[in-house]
Amino acid sequence: MEAIWEYRDLIFIKGGLLTVEVAVYSLILATIFGLLGSWAKLSKNKVARAGADGYTTIIRGIPDLVLMLLIFFQGQILLNRFGESTGLWTFVEIDPMTAGVFTIAFIMGAYYTETFRGAFLSIPSGQIEAATACGMSRPLIFRRIIWPQLVRYALPSFTNNWLVQLKTTALVSLIGLQDIVYNANAIGRKLREPFTFLFAALVFFLFLTAVSEIALRLLERRYSAGIRRA
C-alpha cells in the first residue's frame, strides 16, 4: 500500500488522466461517427446506406485490438507511402495517442450508429410532419423536436456503449501509451508487486464506471422528465 502511495502521481494523476483523456476524446469523435453513420443508414442514398452497413458489419466483426494494431502499424505505413508516391506530404508520424483515440472512436462509432439509428426510428414521424406543417425549418425541427427525444431514447444504449468504451481504453497501453494500465504494470514489475499495482488500476476503472453510471442515470432522469413510467 505504501508503494502505491509513493507512486500515486505516476499512476493515478499521469496515467489516470491519460486514460480519461483518451476516453473523452474518443467519445466525442465516436459520437460524431455514430451520428454520421446513423444519418447515412437512414438516408435515401443507396451508396451511403451500403457504406454505413459495411462499416458497422465489419467493425463489429473484428476485435478491437486487431483493428487497433492494424491502424497503428499499417495505417502509418500506408499514409506515408501514399504521401511519398503522390508527393502531397513527406513523413508523418501517427503518435500512439492519435492512433488510439481514432481507433477506439472508429470502433465505437459503429455501435453508436446503431444506438442513434434506433433512437431516430423511435421518434414518431407524425411529430416531424406536424412540425413541418407548423412551418418550422429543418434545423429548428432538429433542435426542438428531434434532439430532446433522440437523447432520451438513445441514453440507455449510449450508457452501455460508454461503459464498453471506457474499458476498451485500457487497450491503448498495448500500443505504448503510458496510461494507468501501462504505468501500473511497469511499476508493479519493477517493485515485484504486480498484483498490488494492477489491482489499483482495476479499482480506478471501477471508480470511473461507477461515476459514469451515476452521472448518466441523473442525465436520463433529466431527459425523461414528463414521461410516465409503468
Binding site: L163, L171, V181, F205, A210
Partner: peptide, 9 residues
C-alpha cells in the same frame, strides 16, 4: 466494470 485486460494481467 473493469477491463478484461487488467483482469487477465
Amino acid at each position: 466494470g473493469t477491463p478484461l485486460l487488467i483482469q487477465t494481467f
